[in-house]
Nucleic acid binder design. Structure first.
Length: 310
DNA sequence: ATCGCGACCTGGTTGC
DNA sequence: TGCAACCAGGTCGCGA
Protein backbone atom coordinates (compact mmCIF):
# COMPACT_ATOMS: atom_id res chain seq x y z
CA UNK A 1 0.00 0.00 0.00
CA UNK A 2 2.67 2.45 0.76
CA UNK A 3 3.45 5.67 -1.01
CA UNK A 4 4.30 8.80 0.91
CA UNK A 5 0.87 9.48 2.48
CA UNK A 6 0.56 5.93 3.70
CA UNK A 7 4.09 5.83 5.07
CA UNK A 8 3.55 9.15 6.84
CA UNK A 9 0.38 7.77 8.41
CA UNK A 10 2.40 4.84 9.69
CA UNK A 11 5.13 7.15 10.96
CA UNK A 12 2.66 9.26 12.88
CA UNK A 13 1.07 6.16 14.35
CA UNK A 14 4.43 4.79 15.41
CA UNK A 15 5.38 8.13 16.93
CA UNK A 16 2.54 7.85 19.40
CA UNK A 17 3.51 4.37 20.39
CA UNK A 18 7.25 3.77 20.36
CA UNK A 19 8.65 7.15 21.36
CA UNK A 20 10.40 6.90 24.69
CA UNK A 21 10.06 3.14 24.95
CA UNK A 22 12.79 0.55 25.32
CA UNK A 23 13.14 -2.63 23.30
CA UNK A 24 13.12 -5.52 25.75
CA UNK A 25 13.49 -8.24 23.15
CA UNK A 26 13.39 -8.98 19.42
CA UNK A 27 12.23 -12.11 17.63
CA UNK A 28 12.98 -12.57 13.94
CA UNK A 29 10.45 -15.04 12.54
CA UNK A 30 11.66 -14.85 8.94
CA UNK A 31 15.17 -13.85 7.85
CA UNK A 32 14.21 -12.11 4.63
CA UNK A 33 12.97 -8.80 6.06
CA UNK A 34 16.33 -8.29 7.78
CA UNK A 35 18.38 -9.32 4.71
CA UNK A 36 19.96 -5.88 4.53
CA UNK A 37 21.13 -6.03 8.08
CA UNK A 38 24.81 -6.96 7.74
CA UNK A 39 25.00 -9.18 10.81
CA UNK A 40 21.98 -11.29 9.98
CA UNK A 41 18.89 -12.10 12.07
CA UNK A 42 20.65 -13.02 15.29
CA UNK A 43 22.75 -9.90 15.33
CA UNK A 44 19.70 -7.83 14.44
CA UNK A 45 17.88 -9.13 17.51
CA UNK A 46 20.72 -8.79 19.96
CA UNK A 47 21.99 -5.42 18.80
CA UNK A 48 18.55 -3.79 18.99
CA UNK A 49 17.64 -5.12 22.41
CA UNK A 50 18.02 -2.56 25.16
CA UNK A 51 17.78 0.52 22.97
CA UNK A 52 15.24 3.29 23.48
CA UNK A 53 13.26 4.87 20.66
CA UNK A 54 12.91 8.56 20.09
CA UNK A 55 10.47 10.04 17.58
CA UNK A 56 10.24 8.23 14.21
CA UNK A 57 11.11 10.13 11.04
CA UNK A 58 10.53 9.74 7.33
CA UNK A 59 11.92 10.69 3.96
CA UNK A 60 9.85 9.75 0.94
CA UNK A 61 8.74 6.18 1.46
CA UNK A 62 11.50 5.37 3.94
CA UNK A 63 10.99 5.38 7.68
CA UNK A 64 13.59 5.40 10.35
CA UNK A 65 13.11 4.97 14.06
CA UNK A 66 15.98 6.74 15.77
CA UNK A 67 17.32 5.56 19.10
CA UNK A 68 18.43 7.79 21.92
CA UNK A 69 21.99 6.54 21.37
CA UNK A 70 22.25 8.00 17.85
CA UNK A 71 21.70 4.84 15.82
CA UNK A 72 18.41 4.09 14.08
CA UNK A 73 16.17 1.28 12.96
CA UNK A 74 15.71 1.79 9.23
CA UNK A 75 12.46 0.49 7.76
CA UNK A 76 10.91 0.26 4.33
CA UNK A 77 7.43 -1.18 3.89
CA UNK A 78 8.01 -2.38 0.34
CA UNK A 79 4.73 -3.33 -1.28
CA UNK A 80 2.99 -4.93 1.65
CA UNK A 81 4.74 -4.10 4.92
CA UNK A 82 2.78 -3.10 8.00
CA UNK A 83 3.53 -2.27 11.59
CA UNK A 84 0.98 -3.50 14.09
CA UNK A 85 0.79 -3.01 17.81
CA UNK A 86 -0.62 -5.88 19.82
CA UNK A 87 -0.69 -7.70 23.08
CA UNK A 88 2.15 -10.23 23.20
CA UNK A 89 -0.21 -13.17 23.54
CA UNK A 90 -2.56 -12.05 20.76
CA UNK A 91 -2.61 -14.45 17.78
CA UNK A 92 -0.17 -13.56 15.04
CA UNK A 93 -1.53 -12.31 11.76
CA UNK A 94 -0.39 -14.35 8.76
CA UNK A 95 2.98 -13.20 7.43
CA UNK A 96 4.14 -11.74 10.72
CA UNK A 97 7.92 -11.49 10.33
CA UNK A 98 9.51 -9.66 13.28
CA UNK A 99 8.42 -9.01 16.87
CA UNK A 100 9.63 -6.21 19.13
CA UNK A 101 8.73 -6.46 22.79
CA UNK A 102 8.58 -2.98 24.24
CA UNK A 103 8.96 -1.84 27.81
CA UNK A 104 6.35 0.32 29.48
CA UNK A 105 5.63 3.74 28.06
CA UNK A 106 7.86 6.17 29.87
CA UNK A 107 6.02 9.11 28.39
CA UNK A 108 3.06 11.13 29.67
CA UNK A 109 0.59 9.14 31.72
CA UNK A 110 -2.54 8.25 29.82
CA UNK A 111 -5.89 8.68 31.53
CA UNK A 112 -7.12 5.17 32.28
CA UNK A 113 -10.38 4.11 30.66
CA UNK A 114 -13.27 4.08 33.09
CA UNK A 115 -14.52 0.60 32.44
CA UNK A 116 -17.15 0.55 35.17
CA UNK A 117 -19.03 3.50 33.75
CA UNK A 118 -22.39 2.59 32.23
CA UNK A 119 -21.72 5.09 29.49
CA UNK A 120 -18.84 2.99 28.26
CA UNK A 121 -20.96 -0.09 28.04
CA UNK A 122 -22.98 1.51 25.30
CA UNK A 123 -20.13 1.73 22.89
CA UNK A 124 -18.64 -1.67 22.54
CA UNK A 125 -15.54 -0.34 20.84
CA UNK A 126 -12.33 -1.06 22.63
CA UNK A 127 -10.25 1.98 21.94
CA UNK A 128 -7.34 1.38 24.21
CA UNK A 129 -5.43 -1.37 25.89
CA UNK A 130 -2.84 -0.99 28.54
CA UNK A 131 -1.33 -4.39 27.84
CA UNK A 132 -0.38 -3.92 24.18
CA UNK A 133 3.39 -3.93 24.26
CA UNK A 134 4.44 -5.80 21.15
CA UNK A 135 5.30 -4.06 17.91
CA UNK A 136 4.99 -6.43 14.97
CA UNK A 137 6.31 -6.15 11.44
CA UNK A 138 3.98 -7.94 9.05
CA UNK A 139 4.88 -8.27 5.38
CA UNK A 140 3.33 -10.67 2.92
CA UNK A 141 5.58 -10.18 -0.07
CA UNK A 142 8.69 -9.30 1.89
CA UNK A 143 9.90 -6.57 -0.42
CA UNK A 144 10.12 -4.49 2.73
CA UNK A 145 13.04 -4.54 5.10
CA UNK A 146 14.45 -3.61 8.49
CA UNK A 147 18.04 -2.93 9.43
CA UNK A 148 20.12 -1.13 12.01
CA UNK A 149 21.67 2.05 10.67
CA UNK A 150 24.72 3.06 12.72
CA UNK A 151 24.70 6.80 13.48
CA UNK A 152 21.48 6.96 11.46
CA UNK A 153 19.35 8.94 13.89
CA UNK A 154 19.66 12.17 11.96
CA UNK A 155 19.60 10.67 8.48
CA UNK A 156 20.62 7.09 7.70
CA UNK A 157 23.55 6.87 5.30
CA UNK A 158 21.51 4.35 3.33
CA UNK A 159 19.20 7.22 2.32
CA UNK A 160 21.86 9.53 0.99
CA UNK A 161 20.74 8.85 -2.57
CA UNK A 162 17.05 9.50 -1.83
CA UNK A 163 15.84 12.95 -2.77
CA UNK A 164 13.89 15.12 -0.36
CA UNK A 165 10.15 14.72 -0.62
CA UNK A 166 7.74 17.62 -1.28
CA UNK A 167 6.77 17.81 2.40
CA UNK A 168 10.34 18.19 3.60
CA UNK A 169 10.82 21.70 5.06
CA UNK A 170 14.05 21.90 3.08
CA UNK A 171 12.52 20.72 -0.18
CA UNK A 172 13.67 23.08 -2.91
CA UNK A 173 11.03 23.31 -5.67
CA UNK A 174 13.26 25.17 -8.08
CA UNK A 175 16.02 22.60 -7.73
CA UNK A 176 13.52 19.78 -8.17
CA UNK A 177 12.19 21.40 -11.34
CA UNK A 178 15.73 21.65 -12.64
CA UNK A 179 16.45 17.99 -11.88
CA UNK A 180 13.27 16.92 -13.65
CA UNK A 181 14.01 18.99 -16.73
CA UNK A 182 17.53 17.62 -16.92
CA UNK A 183 16.17 14.15 -17.68
CA UNK A 184 15.40 12.90 -21.14
CA UNK A 185 13.27 10.03 -19.85
CA UNK A 186 9.51 9.86 -19.86
CA UNK A 187 8.02 12.12 -17.22
CA UNK A 188 6.38 9.30 -15.29
CA UNK A 189 9.66 7.45 -15.02
CA UNK A 190 11.19 10.61 -13.60
CA UNK A 191 8.36 11.07 -11.09
CA UNK A 192 8.97 7.52 -9.89
CA UNK A 193 12.72 8.06 -9.62
CA UNK A 194 13.23 8.44 -5.88
CA UNK A 195 16.56 10.18 -6.35
CA UNK A 196 14.89 13.11 -8.10
CA UNK A 197 11.93 13.68 -5.77
CA UNK A 198 10.95 10.99 -3.29
CA UNK A 199 7.62 9.70 -2.06
CA UNK A 200 5.73 9.45 -5.36
CA UNK A 201 4.65 5.96 -6.43
CA UNK A 202 2.52 4.53 -9.21
CA UNK A 203 -0.83 5.76 -7.90
CA UNK A 204 0.09 9.35 -7.12
CA UNK A 205 2.19 9.65 -10.27
CA UNK A 206 -0.90 8.85 -12.31
CA UNK A 207 -2.99 11.26 -10.25
CA UNK A 208 -0.49 14.09 -10.63
CA UNK A 209 -0.18 13.51 -14.38
CA UNK A 210 -3.96 13.52 -14.73
CA UNK A 211 -4.25 16.80 -12.85
CA UNK A 212 -1.54 18.29 -15.04
CA UNK A 213 -3.06 16.81 -18.22
CA UNK A 214 0.24 15.20 -19.12
CA UNK A 215 0.86 11.88 -20.85
CA UNK A 216 3.21 9.55 -18.98
CA UNK A 217 5.50 9.25 -22.00
CA UNK A 218 6.14 12.94 -22.39
CA UNK A 219 9.90 13.56 -22.27
CA UNK A 220 10.75 15.31 -19.01
CA UNK A 221 13.09 17.73 -20.71
CA UNK A 222 10.29 18.89 -23.00
CA UNK A 223 8.34 20.42 -20.09
CA UNK A 224 8.57 24.12 -19.49
CA UNK A 225 9.75 25.08 -16.03
CA UNK A 226 6.26 26.35 -15.30
CA UNK A 227 4.69 23.04 -16.30
CA UNK A 228 7.17 21.04 -14.26
CA UNK A 229 6.47 23.30 -11.29
CA UNK A 230 2.74 22.79 -11.76
CA UNK A 231 3.17 19.02 -11.95
CA UNK A 232 5.16 18.96 -8.72
CA UNK A 233 2.50 21.07 -7.07
CA UNK A 234 -0.16 18.57 -8.13
CA UNK A 235 1.90 15.70 -6.78
CA UNK A 236 2.22 17.42 -3.44
CA UNK A 237 -1.46 18.39 -3.36
CA UNK A 238 -2.78 14.94 -4.19
CA UNK A 239 -0.53 13.33 -1.60
CA UNK A 240 -1.60 15.96 0.93
CA UNK A 241 -5.25 15.22 0.23
CA UNK A 242 -4.67 11.49 0.69
CA UNK A 243 -2.77 12.11 3.89
CA UNK A 244 -5.61 14.19 5.27
CA UNK A 245 -8.06 11.39 4.57
CA UNK A 246 -5.78 8.67 5.81
CA UNK A 247 -5.30 10.31 9.12
CA UNK A 248 -8.94 10.05 10.03
CA UNK A 249 -9.87 6.50 9.17
CA UNK A 250 -7.33 4.69 11.32
CA UNK A 251 -7.69 3.18 14.70
CA UNK A 252 -4.89 4.82 16.61
CA UNK A 253 -4.12 1.56 18.34
CA UNK A 254 -3.17 -0.03 15.09
CA UNK A 255 -0.43 1.83 13.53
CA UNK A 256 -1.37 0.85 10.11
CA UNK A 257 -3.42 -0.54 7.47
CA UNK A 258 -6.05 -2.50 8.86
CA UNK A 259 -5.83 -4.04 5.45
CA UNK A 260 -9.54 -3.77 5.00
CA UNK A 261 -11.62 -0.73 5.85
CA UNK A 262 -12.63 2.21 3.75
CA UNK A 263 -9.20 3.72 3.61
CA UNK A 264 -8.85 2.59 0.06
CA UNK A 265 -11.77 4.69 -0.99
CA UNK A 266 -9.76 7.79 -1.51
CA UNK A 267 -10.90 10.06 -4.23
CA UNK A 268 -8.75 8.89 -7.08
CA UNK A 269 -9.34 10.50 -10.46
CA UNK A 270 -7.09 8.27 -12.52
CA UNK A 271 -5.68 5.20 -10.80
CA UNK A 272 -7.86 2.12 -11.19
CA UNK A 273 -10.48 3.90 -13.30
CA UNK A 274 -10.12 1.93 -16.53
CA UNK A 275 -13.31 2.28 -18.56
CA UNK A 276 -14.81 4.84 -16.18
CA UNK A 277 -15.51 8.37 -17.38
CA UNK A 278 -12.80 10.98 -17.01
CA UNK A 279 -13.93 13.30 -14.23
CA UNK A 280 -13.04 16.26 -16.43
CA UNK A 281 -14.28 15.39 -19.92
CA UNK A 282 -16.26 12.18 -19.58
CA UNK A 283 -14.24 10.10 -22.02
CA UNK A 284 -13.52 6.56 -20.80
CA UNK A 285 -10.18 6.26 -19.04
CA UNK A 286 -7.71 3.74 -20.38
CA UNK A 287 -5.16 1.45 -18.78
CA UNK A 288 -1.85 0.89 -20.50
CA UNK A 289 1.32 -0.93 -19.54
CA UNK A 290 4.27 1.30 -18.76
CA UNK A 291 7.45 0.19 -17.02
CA UNK A 292 5.95 -3.27 -16.48
CA UNK A 293 3.04 -1.87 -14.52
CA UNK A 294 -0.31 -0.27 -15.15
CA UNK A 295 -0.80 3.37 -16.04
CA UNK A 296 -4.18 5.04 -16.15
CA UNK A 297 -4.93 8.14 -18.18
CA UNK A 298 -7.61 9.99 -20.06
CA UNK A 299 -7.10 9.51 -23.81
CA UNK A 300 -8.53 12.95 -24.43
CA UNK A 301 -7.04 15.13 -21.68
CA UNK A 302 -3.67 13.39 -21.69
CA UNK A 303 -2.72 12.96 -25.32
CA UNK A 304 0.27 10.94 -26.36
CA UNK A 305 3.12 13.29 -27.25
CA UNK A 306 4.35 13.55 -30.78
CA UNK A 307 7.68 11.89 -31.30
CA UNK A 308 10.68 13.96 -30.48
CA UNK A 309 11.76 15.68 -33.68
CA UNK A 310 15.51 15.53 -33.22
C1' DA B 1 27.07 7.99 -16.39
C1' DT B 2 22.36 6.95 -17.50
C1' DC B 3 18.70 3.90 -18.93
C1' DG B 4 15.54 -0.16 -19.08
C1' DC B 5 14.67 -4.57 -17.72
C1' DG B 6 14.25 -8.57 -14.79
C1' DA B 7 14.54 -10.35 -10.12
C1' DC B 8 12.98 -10.47 -5.62
C1' DC B 9 8.28 -12.72 -2.91
C1' DT B 10 3.31 -14.32 -1.61
C1' DG B 11 -1.42 -14.63 -2.45
C1' DG B 12 -5.80 -13.11 -4.46
C1' DT B 13 -8.37 -12.96 -8.74
C1' DT B 14 -9.33 -14.13 -13.54
C1' DG B 15 -9.90 -16.99 -17.41
C1' DC B 16 -9.62 -21.23 -19.91
C1' DT C 1 -13.66 -27.82 -10.28
C1' DG C 2 -8.71 -27.30 -11.35
C1' DC C 3 -5.05 -24.98 -12.51
C1' DA C 4 -2.23 -21.71 -14.90
C1' DA C 5 -1.65 -17.00 -15.80
C1' DC C 6 -1.94 -12.55 -14.37
C1' DC C 7 -1.86 -8.83 -11.17
C1' DA C 8 -0.47 -6.05 -6.94
C1' DG C 9 0.72 0.87 -4.57
C1' DG C 10 8.68 -0.79 -4.57
C1' DT C 11 13.54 -1.05 -5.08
C1' DC C 12 17.84 -2.78 -6.54
C1' DG C 13 21.43 -4.55 -9.52
C1' DC C 14 22.88 -5.83 -13.82
C1' DG C 15 24.03 -5.37 -18.60
C1' DA C 16 23.69 -2.37 -22.57
Amino acid sequence: MPELPEVETVRAGLAGIVTGRRIEGVTVLHPRPVRRHPGGPDDFATTLTGRTFIEPRRRGKYLWLPFADGDALLAHLGMSGQFRFDEPDAPLLPNTRVLFDLGPDAGPVVEPVETTSPADATNGVSTSSTSATQLRFVDQRMFGGLSLSPDGADLPAELSHIGRDPFDPQFDPAAAVARIRAKRSAIKRVLLDQTVVSGIGNIYADEALWRARLHYDRPADSLTAAKARELLGHARDVMGDALAQGGTSFDSLYVNVNGSSGYFERSLAAYGREGLPCLRCGRPMVREPFMNRSSFRCPNCQRRPRRRSS
